[in-house]
Simulated assay, not measured.
Amino acid sequence: MIRFGVIGTNWITEKFIKSAKEIDDFSLVAVYSRTEERANEFAEEFQIPYRYTDLESMAKSDHVDAVYIASPNSFHAEQAILCMNHGKHVLCEKPMASTSQEIRKMVEAAKQNRVLLMEALKTTLLPNFQAISEHMAKIGRIRRYVANYCQYSSRYDAYLNGKVLNAFNPKFSNGALMDLGIYCIYPLVVLFGKPSQIKANSVLLETGVDGEGSIVMNYGDMEAVVMYSKITNSTMPSEIQGENGNIIIDQISQPGRVDIRYRNGITENITLPQKKETMYYEVKEFIELIKKGQLEPTINTHQNSLIAAEIMEEARQQSGIVFPADRK
Rank of each mutant, 00 (worst) to 15 (best):
K171P: 00
K122C: 14
F168V: 13
P49C: 06
R316K: 15
S253C: 13
I247K: 00
L125F: 07
M312G: 13
T99R: 10
L306E: 12
R51T: 04
L188W: 03
S319R: 08
M96L: 14
S98H: 04
R144A: 07
R143W: 02
I287A: 05
I23F: 11
S57G: 08
K291I: 08
N304M: 12
F75G: 00
Q294S: 13
H86N: 10
R38L: 13
T99A: 07
A325M: 15
L188V: 04
F26R: 09
L191M: 15
A147R: 06
T267Q: 04
A137N: 14
A110F: 02
G175K: 02
E36K: 11
V67Y: 04
L306R: 09
Q151K: 07
Y280V: 11
K275F: 13
N304R: 08
Q317H: 14
S319M: 12
F323Q: 01
D221R: 10
K199L: 15
N264L: 02
P297G: 08
S305I: 08
E45H: 09
R263E: 07
E310A: 10
M222L: 13
F46R: 08
E36N: 06
T232D: 15
S33C: 10
S319K: 04
E277G: 04
G181A: 07
N201Y: 07
N128P: 06
M279W: 12
R141V: 01
E45A: 11
V6S: 10
N161E: 14
K88V: 01
I215T: 04
P49M: 14
K94D: 00
Q130N: 04
R3W: 08
L160W: 08
E223S: 03
K15I: 11
S71W: 02
L91M: 07
L55E: 08
M279Y: 13
Y228P: 05
A66P: 02
I12V: 12
E285G: 05
V209Q: 02
K230H: 12
V322Q: 10
S202Q: 11
